[in-house]
Design a protein around this nucleic acid. Structure first.
Length: 599
RNA sequence: GGGACCGUAGUUCAACUGGUUAGAGCACCGCCCUGUCACGGCGGAAGUUGCGGGUUCGAAUCCCGUCGGUCCCGCCA
């Protein structure tokens, strides 16, 4: 059909006869001469039509519209010097068309313009509904190519290190805890359901037990939860697992993998080792387990300074076992107006939205401080000087304080910190790729509402420095234990996480009991795992990266939808196919399923 | 489940504090134009202002409801 593509053409083709196919990107009809920008997957070439070439072909050329699909044959000509277009790789050339075949025409108006010159703020609703048109604009295709390259580099790297890519089932078992499952009924098992995997977690462990040694998978995962800019109901993990390995080895290995991807895809050398921070440090200094360390404003605990000054909110916080913490905004007094940090102000609101009762402030001035009377009346010089010492606050700085339950104080100050960093442009642009390992997660956290323990990572993480014998002797020891778990954080975003897994059946049973499962439930839901662990399971561990997020960050996009060919909208619907949708009664009957919602 | 913002021609936007017949660019249709490249010129068609209700002499504009979209909270082992 064609013997050339646009990007292949250069001045050595001048005088040659070529056949090209593509879309009409734009047409410029001068009456006498018609210019068409031909676009194919590789680039552009200007076509010219002259009346002297015959009435039939000229008439046909006049009928061309944007996005008409054509095949053209002609002679590659050198453009006159004054007509060279320096913005085009084929700008010195043009094709004088001798034969024009219209392969497909467009019907009516397009839902939005495709030509890159019209690239405007097209509503995303339309871009997703007519994804094939948006793809034709090129940017998304480039994003998909970058995504492809990331996967390719990872595959090559892992292959070279002796890993085997294995596909695990999509039709699998619904598991308790975690996210909501997508359920799949089956005609052969009426009344029963498969679940789509939230991750291949247990299967990759079983592969280790099977002696595969090194596994990876570009794995589709499914979670029926609400969506965000960085969360889709189906997403992709780069999933990795290894046997006879410890935490340190996994971290070092995956750091190499990430560095390789950044080098091959972006040509960026991440030469220094990624810094590490324990979960405790992260919570203490940043109030979150995925801190953005590109800027300062660390959280400081001022409970022992302000807890007993007599200000009721502070006193109560400490008395109830909570915290008083603060962040210091350098030169905040001039950069942030009073109304913003008082009730009704945007910064105050951020703190309150995060659950805090409010946000207190202390403005540091020359030889004085400014704050609300209820606080100021209770301060003396020694307290102030201690406060200034611990916060390193100087004249002009603004101290923002939170008091109450530690989790709430952490969460609200974390949000305020992030908000202010964005508002005041405090993010260090030189730290564009600020990777950080978070380690030493606790095994469990308390679910206050239901008064029970939940696995912080998942209940297959192996606790650190503790044996099943220890835990039998001291229940508390296990509950307060640290997991051999680690997360990779980039600029405040979780890129991936993993752990050393439990390879001992008795420990696995203990942990599952701790998160509230009965013996029966353990047997029913995880019997196959417990059994497998009893048959010579090797120590093993691994990690899973969010491939969509990695791609998003590498591309500098704000949403993973820009990295996915056919994404869902925020209501979890596919606007292109209108899925999910109704099914016929006969389909339902075959599954013995009845719809009870009323129309 | 909750909060915020948005919805005007095929499309991207405009329309003052509620006030004439809701405008413009691109696209579309017609005519003109032989070197443009986001070509240019003249003319034309194109609107249930998402939908429904209310306030008003008068609503794209204000109010209520509803539908759709985006961002966020909850949720996401």
């Amino acid at each position: 059909m064609r013997n050339k593509i646009c990007e292949e053409l250069n001045t050595s083709d001048i005088g040659k006869s070529v056949d090209l196919c593509g879309w009409v990107d734009r047409r410029r009809d001068h009456g006498g001469v018609i210019f068409i920008d031909l676009r194919d997957h590789s680039g552009f070439l200007q076509l010219t039509f002259n009346p002297e070439d015959g009435e039939t072909i000229f008439k046909r050329a006049e009928s061309l519209r944007n996005e008409t699909v054509i095949r053209v044959s002609g002679i590659v000509n050198k453009r006159p010097i004054e007509s060279i277009n320096p913005n085009l790789s084929t700008g010195k050339l043009e094709l004088n068309v001798k034969e024009l075949i219209i392969l497909n025409q467009i019907k009516g108006n397009l839902p939005f313009p495709v030509s890159i010159h019209d690239y405007e703020n097209t509503k995303e609703e339309l871009r997703i509904k007519y994804r094939y048109l948006d793809l034709r604009r090129g940017k998304l295709i480039n994003n998909l190519k970058t995504r492809h390259k990331i996967i390719k580099v990872a595959r090559e790297f892992l292959d070279l290190k002796g890993f085997t890519e294995v596909e695990t089932p999509l039709l699998t078992k619904s598991t308790p805890e975690g996210a909501r499952d997508f359920l799949v009924p089956s005609r052969l098992s009426k009344g029963e359901f498969f679940a789509l995997p939230q991750s291949p977690q247990l299967f990759k462990q079983l592969l280790m037990i099977g002696g595969l040694n090194k596994y990876y998978q570009i794995a589709k995962c499914f979670r029926d939860e609400d969506l965000r800019a960085d969360r889709q109901p189906e997403f992709t993990q780069l999933d990795i697992e290894m046997s006879f390995i410890n935490e340190e080895q996994i971290i070092e290995f995956n750091e190499k993998l990430i560095k390789k991807i950044w080098k091959e895809v972006l040509n960026i050398d991440l030469d220094r080792n990624f810094p590490r921070m324990t979960w405790k440090e992260a919570m203490k200094n940043y109030g979150t387990d995925r801190p953005d360390t590109r800027y300062e404003m660390l959280l400081k605990d001022v409970g022992n300074i302000l807890g007993e000054i007599g200000f009721n909110i502070f006193t109560k916080a400490i008395k109830n076992g909570g915290s008083i913490k603060c962040i210091t905004v350098k030169n905040g007094n001039s950069k942030i107006s009073n109304v913003r940090i008082k009730p009704g102000g945007d910064i105050f609101q951020v703190a309150q939205d995060a659950g805090a009762g409010g946000l207190a402030f202390i403005k540091v001035k020359e030889n004085d401080i400014e704050t609300i009377g209820a606080i100021k009346n209770n301060l003396n010089e020694s307290i102030i000087s201690k406060l200034l010492e611990i916060t390193s606050a100087e004249n002009g700085d603004l101290i923002l304080l939170g008091a109450g339950k530690t989790e709430v104080v952490n969460q609200s100050l974390d949000r305020v910190r992030q908000y202010i960093a964005k508002e005041l442009n405090l993010i260090d642009v030189n730290k564009r790729w600020n990777f950080l390992w978070i380690t030493d997660f606790p095994m469990f956290e308390k679910n206050e509402d239901e008064n029970r323990l939940e696995a912080l990572h998942h209940p297959f993480c192996c606790p650190k420095n503790i044996t099943i014998k220890d835990s039998n002797d001291d229940e508390d020891l296990l509950e307060k234990s640290t997991a051999q778990a680690y997360d990779l954080v980039l600029n405040g975003l979780e890129l991936g996480g993993g752990s050393i897994r439990i390879h001992e059946s008795r420990m696995q049973k203990e942990i599952l009991k701790k998160v509230g499962l009965s013996d029966e439930e353990i047997k029913e839901k995880f019997g196959f795992l417990i059994e497998a662990l009893e048959m010579g399971a090797p120590p093993h561990g691994g990690i899973a990266f969010g491939l969509d997020r990695i791609t998003m960050l590498i591309l500098g996009e704000d949403s993973i939808r820009e990295t996915i060919a056919f994404p869902k909208n925020q209501q979890s619907k596919c606007l292109l196919t209108d899925a999910p949708s109704n099914v016929s009664n006969s389909q339902l009957k075959e599954l013995d399923i009845e719809i009870t919602i009323e129309e």
